[in-house]
Amino acid sequence: MTTKDTIRTFIVSELAGEEGTEIKDSDQLIDAGIIDSMGIIALLGFLETEFAIQIDSDELLPENLGTVQAISDLVDRKLRA
């Protein structure tokens, strides 16, 4: 499973609240009502555990966490580093 798929699966199964929710790579997760602000916190915890990474203060940016694509890019960058 790709990074993006892993993230998408977690959001759909654990955070979206509705089974079968379809999430496009570029959907703004909060604005589209897919997750709420608390969901972002849960998502951060998942990312750090699942991918064994640490997201630092200067990476806690809306542009890194707004969409599945952005989150996946952040994780891939961290994994490559």
Partner: peptide, 10 residues
């Protein structure tokens, strides 16, 4: 709030 038009997270 610095920008109402940005996505909610920002």
């Amino acid at each position: 709030v610095t920008d109402d038009q940005r996505p909610a997270l920002g």
